[in-house]
Design a protein around this nucleic acid. Structure first.
Length: 426
RNA sequence: GUGGGUGUAGCUCAGUGGUUAGAGCGCCAGGUUGUGGCCCUGGAGGCCGGGGGUUCGAGUCCCCUCACUCACCCCA
């Protein structure tokens, strides 16, 4: 069938689009007050960017990328996450020559992963994220977390849970890694097949295994092996969060699925999301720019799933009503139909949301259409009114009607145009 | 990738193997002169997800497939 969308994709249609626009304007406003500016990067990149940046051994790159060869035999990949592209763009556009840190955000960015779809998991979803590049100050980690919290709280969420961990840096992680491997070697009999494979390739991910929670809970903790600098950074972050009154739980088993993370990793979960309960997550990636062949550029950021945020809001019963109404609906009597569109255009030119009937409806049916639109005002155009150079304007909520000269109509409506709905409520 | 559940109108769902497949909501029209929502009447809209099989006969039973969904893995 040609009328079905690809597996794991979703159409976003009115009135849902109004809710997206509401979230987007909210995100833009939060970013504005935090001093973050928008960046837009390509939908696809050289496959190598994700292999090197995100990591060959991550699940995302190992088995979830949409990779294809173009007609020039280049291997390209639809982006499976946002950070690698932003860091690439930072380097490529010489943003390291601008005042540091450079604070960027992306919004409703399509993300592609070849997943088995289920509720809260799609093959194409959209992320809002920020990346702050050029500083390793733990206050910046705290700011990023504060920004994300501000955003979701302003959107209306209340039931949030922040988990936090530090996984060290190239100075201290190797030793921790050895100790961890040694620990798990002693328990291979109790491990699942996936974990035995992970033991050699990506031992930190062992902590992520959901089947052997007891093993992970008893495993050596990265926090106990942090070098002095990483320890100080983590303490600094915790102190900054406490200063801001942001509650958190330290979770030593939190490691996250992308290989580029250093030091800080965090994840917000939400109770209403079910099994896919990660609403957003992020961390620090001080080595990523070098991995891509650039200078050392520390950075920290997060990615938030917009679909999941909408799901969490719905779960809390806090999704706003989507406004699809219009200010004025012009109703034309039989002798005045030709005058309707010009009048509608005149109102629109004055900034008044206006519409009319396009189904050649009867006068009565036009009124019904206006009421069900819903429109706040019916602007009645009849021969009598036209002869007087006026229109009858009926307030459909209050039921009162008065005659307004056509020349005053736009101003009359503009003064009374109600502002409501998700966009205006932001 | 593994396992369970479900696919009937735009939406939410009825429908013992037996005529021409239904309801509510939504949509369109009408309810007489130029006044809406409520109400009343009528209408449009279905390859019953797709394919194969069993049967005199399949929306209903069986197999395959696709999609959705829940769990696992992992993530946003």
């Amino acid at each position: 069938m040609l009328t079905s969308r690809p597996r794991g994709t979703a159409d976003i249609v009115p009135p849902d689009t109004a809710r997206w626009q509401w979230l987007e304007s909210l995100a833009r406003d939060v970013c504005r007050v935090y001093g973050y500016f928008e960046i837009r990067t390509p939908t696809f990149e050289h496959s190598e960017l994700f292999h090197r940046g995100v990591g060959d051994t991550s699940d995302i790159v190992e088995k979830e990328t949409y990779t294809f060869e173009d007609r020039g035999k280049r291997s390209l990949t639809l982006r499976p996450e946002g950070t690698a592209s932003v860091v690439r763009a930072y380097l490529e556009n010489g943003l390291h020559n601008r005042p540091q840190p450079v604070k960027l955000y992306y919004l409703s960015l399509p993300i592609f992963r070849y997943e088995k779809p289920q509720a809260g998991r799609l093959r194409e979803h959209h992320q809002f994220g920020v990346e702050a590049l050029g500083s390793d100050d733990p206050h910046l980690d705290a700011e990023v977390i504060a920004l994300s919290l501000d955003f979701v709280r302003r959107a209306g969420l209340t039931q949030l849970d922040l988990r936090l961990n530090s996984i060290g840096c190239p100075a201290c992680r190797p030793r921790y890694r050895e100790v961890l491997v040694e620990y798990y070697r002693g328990h291979t009999g109790e491990m699942c097949a996936d974990c035995r494979r992970r033991l050699e390739r990506n031992p930190l991910r062992l902590l992520d295994c959901k089947t052997d929670r007891a093993l992970a809970a008893a495993a050596p903790r990265s926090l106990d092996f942090l070098c002095e600098a990483c320890r100080a950074h983590f303490d600094g972050l915790k102190a900054a969060l406490e200063e801001l009154g942001i509650g958190y739980t330290v979770d030593p088993t939190l490691v996250r699925g992308l290989d580029y993370y250093t030091r800080t990793v965090f994840e917000f979960t939400h109770g209403a999301l079910g099994a896919q309960n990660a609403l957003f997550g992020g961390g620090r990636y001080d080595g990523l720019a070098e991995t891509l062949g650039g200078p050392r550029v520390p950075g920290v950021g997060f990615g938030l799933g917009m679909e999941r945020l909408l799901g969490a809001l719905a779960g809390e019963g806090r999704l706003p009503e989507a406004e699809t109404g219009v200010t004025a609906f012009v109703i034309a009597a039989d002798g005045a139909r030709a005058r309707a569109l010009p009048l509608v255009q005149r109102l629109r030119a004055a900034g008044v949301a206006a519409d009319m009937d396009f189904l050649d409806r009867s006068f009565r049916a036009q009124f019904k259409a206006a009421a069900r639109y819903p429109a706040h005002f019916a602007v009645i155009l009849g021969e009598a009114e036209l002869a007087a150079g006026a229109a009858a304007v009926k307030d459909l909520e209050r039921g009162v009607q008065e005659t307004v000269p056509l020349d005053d109509l736009a101003e009359y409506l503009r003064r009374r145009a109600p502002r409501s709905g998700p966009q205006a409520g932001a």
